[in-house]
Computed example of a mutant assay.
Amino acid sequence: MTTGEHGVDLLILDLDGVLVDTQDAEDGALAYLGTLMGVHLEHHEAQELFSGKKVQECIDLLEGLAHRPPPPDAVPIVRAKCRELIGSTLEPVPGVREALARVDVPMCVASNSPLELIKERLSDCGIIDHFDGRLYSAYEAGAWKPDPGLFRWAARDQGVPADRCLVVEDSLVGVDAALAAGMKVLQFNVVPVRAPHRAGVPTFSSMHALPGLVHGGRSS
């Protein structure tokens, strides 16, 4: 993959698990809902089942496993449990602050999360200023990953052709959306040995490596 000033005009970043350290909390909150419905999942099972997906889609998956409807307030239950698991302080993924400061192309966030949640988490981590309002929510687009519509909307809004965009994702759902949108994609995994990935998609395990990858380096 060739990247750099002649290959990338827009860097599109996922939120949970890429910029902010919340993916385990998201998966854990959904697993908690599962226990309320009689479905008990191990950590790796919750990760594989839920990571990157729309909350309602995850609740639908639990309904299928439980063979019973979810509580009527399932989404608020998940949101509240996630906040509890995150705790009083939210941190960016290690290396993110330094990486964002060194990336020299326009950046935006494209997430399956609601827009207000994107703003809240980026603000809590102190990194929202890097994006200058370039925040794209699937709830605003009406298209959730793996549908490529969210990424295509972000690129169109920024006036950048799809093949000049580089997407950073941690989940297969996001990777598949980027590929379907015709964009370059990198998969970020802190523990790459255990993480499922798509053949041919470069992976990296340290955010410190991101600027080099954007500007022409290789995955590490």
Score class of each variant (00 low, 15 high):
205 S>C: 08
173 V>D: 05
97 R>T: 12
37 M>Q: 00
173 V>S: 13
91 E>Q: 13
16 D>H: 05
10 L>Y: 03
3 T>S: 13
138 A>G: 15
99 A>W: 00
179 L>I: 12
51 S>G: 09
33 L>N: 06
1 M>I: 01
171 S>H: 09
89 T>R: 11
116 E>Y: 03
178 A>D: 04
194 R>K: 13
157 D>V: 12
122 L>A: 11
29 A>K: 09
137 S>A: 15
147 D>G: 11
173 V>E: 07
134 R>L: 02
117 L>D: 09
16 D>Y: 06
200 G>N: 00
60 D>K: 14
46 A>M: 01
146 P>T: 03
118 I>G: 13
148 P>H: 05
130 H>W: 10
119 K>C: 13
146 P>M: 03
168 V>C: 12
160 V>E: 06
208 H>S: 11
178 A>E: 04
16 D>N: 14
51 S>I: 04
165 C>I: 02
131 F>W: 04
14 D>I: 02
70 P>A: 15
185 V>K: 09
55 V>E: 12
189 N>W: 01
9 D>T: 10
97 R>V: 09
40 H>R: 05
166 L>Y: 12
33 L>Y: 00
131 F>C: 04
25 A>S: 15
22 T>V: 07
126 G>K: 12
98 E>I: 04
82 C>A: 12
60 D>W: 08
56 Q>E: 14
125 C>S: 14
45 E>L: 02
36 L>S: 06
2 T>W: 02
200 G>K: 00
203 T>I: 07
176 D>C: 06
40 H>P: 00
41 L>Q: 00
216 G>H: 06
160 V>Q: 07
110 A>P: 03
90 L>Y: 12
5 E>S: 15
30 L>S: 03
135 L>H: 11
70 P>D: 09
134 R>A: 15
6 H>V: 10
